[in-house]
Structures are given as C-alpha cells and as structure tokens.
C-alpha cells in the first residue's frame, strides 16, 4: 500500500548526469518562456521538445502515464472549453503550456534522486542557516521519512480499533485517538532527541564549552536538563563537580 519509491530510477542518460541546479533552472526558465510566449507554433515546438526530453530519461512507464494522463485530461478539458468559446489559438497555446511544463517537470523528477534534490534545497536554504541550520534540516527530513509509515500505522490501527467497537462509521472515533497518539509519539520522539543531544547541535554548536565556571552555580535540575553528550566531551568536568 505504502511505497516511498517515487519517479526516480537510476539510469545513465544526459539528464541524469546533469546537476540538479541546472535542471531546476531549465525548468524555471522553460516555464516562464511557455507562459509568456503565446504563439501556438512556438508552443507546439516547446511541447515536442519537452516530451522528447521526458522520453530521453527513460521514465518508469506506469507512473509517468498516470502523471501525464491527469495533465492531458486537464488540457483536453481546457481545450474543449476554449474551443466552445471560439478561441482556437488560445486553446492550442494553453494546452501546449500545460503539457510541456508537466513533461519537463516529470523529466526533472525522473532524472533527479531525492537525495540530490534535498541537497539542492538545503543549498538554497543556506542563507537561512542562522534560523535553520543545515543539520536541523537533515534531521527533520530523516525523521519525517520515518514518521510517515508511523503516522499511517497509527491511522490504520485507529480504524481497526474503531471497527472492532462497531464504530467504523464514526469519524471522531478514528481521528481523535489517532491524532492524540500522533502528538504523543512526537513528544516522545522529542524527548529521545533531547536525551541524545541531537537537536541541540544547531543551538549550542557555536557556544564555547562551559568548563569550570558552571559547576559552582549549576543546580542539579539544570544539569539533568543537559544532554549527556556534552557531559561526555570534557572528561574532567565530572571530577570537578565532585
């Protein structure tokens, strides 16, 4: 039921070898060009070029057909609507835009692995590193990928439990237990992270190690609040406390 395998397949085509920023720039530039140019001949040319690019990445057939099927349906409806209003040229242009941008976006998705794409996003987020350090982004992405099956499992279990009580038509009996269990899972996860000192790396990384001066005033409660990792790094701080 749940597969996290996206569109990407490892292949060795020109688009697979191109760097992620180049592909994203190509997609952005091509989208703007498509939307600005309203000449049907250019539009059809761009559409054919994008479809060729998509084909050149040797995409997985089923997922691609599903993705393109949806957009072709929308394009067909748009065309029917515009023809109905008597605007034939605009119909051609709009349908061409929709299909070409979708084909190019699929081509980029098929040729760029999730890792590459996330590296690209992290690089884009670098100006934000004072608020959102790259390590924090990495931890969040990894935890989210782990949390997806967990949240799905909680939802499915809540439905099974509701059905067992004869309440499978009661949405509240499904959603309230699953939502509160999900929050509970998150809070436990937060405690586990805190206990390992993982998330503190973003906040305390540039603060010098407190040596000496802390022991005198540090209350036992405050010391308990600290992650054990920091205690482990200066070996003499334990002996100094005694």
């Amino acid at each position: 039921m749940i597969s996290l395998l996206g569109l990407y397949r490892p292949r060795n085509t020109p688009l697979h070898r191109a760097p992620a920023w180049f592909k994203m720039l190509l997609l952005l530039g091509m989208s703007i060009t498509c939307l600005v140019v309203s000449d049907p001949v250019t539009s059809i040319g761009i559409t054919l070029a994008c479809l060729l690019l998509l084909a050149s990445t040797l995409p997985p057939a089923k997922a691609t057909l599903r993705g393109m099927g949806f957009i072709v349906l929308i394009a067909a409806l748009t065309t029917v609507f515009q023809v109905w209003r008597g605007e034939y040229i605009r119909a051609l242009d709009l349908a061409g835009d929709l299909i070409s941008i979708a084909a190019l976006a699929l081509a980029v998705s098929c040729s760029t692995s999730m890792g590459e794409m996330l590296d690209f996003v992290t690089a884009l987020a670098r100006p934000l590193r004072w608020i959102l350090p790259p390590e924090t982004i990495g931890v969040m992405v990894a935890l989210t990928l782990r949390a997806i099956p967990e949240a799905a499992r909680i939802l499915v279990e809540a439905r099974v439990a509701a059905r067992a009580r004869g309440l499978d038509r009661s949405v509240r009996a499904i959603l309230i237990p699953s939502a509160s269990r999900t929050v509970g899972f998150a809070l436990q996860l937060g405690q586990a992270l805190h206990a390992r000192g993982i998330a503190e790396s973003g906040r305390g990384a540039h603060v010098p190690e407190p040596v000496g001066a802390v022991e005198g005033e540090g209350s036992p409660a405050a010391r308990l609040g600290e992650p054990p990792v920091r205690d482990a790094t200066p070996p003499d701080s334990e002996s100094g406390a005694r």
Partner: peptide, 29 residues
C-alpha cells in the same frame, strides 16, 4: 536560533502525518 528538540519532533511528525493522510485509504462518513 533553531528549533528545540521537541519542536523538531513535532514538525517532522506532523509533516509525516500530512503525508500519511494522503496514503491511507479514505474514511467513509
């Protein structure tokens, strides 16, 4: 500066919940 561990966990789990909500079968009213 940055999120606390609890915030990171809540953010990640809720992002996971949004994703999971599109994956589980629909609920009948």
């Amino acid at each position: 500066r940055g999120f606390t561990a609890q915030s990171i966990a809540l953010v990640a789990v809720f992002a996971g919940l949004i994703a999971a909500s599109t994956l589980v079968p629909e609920i009948a009213l």
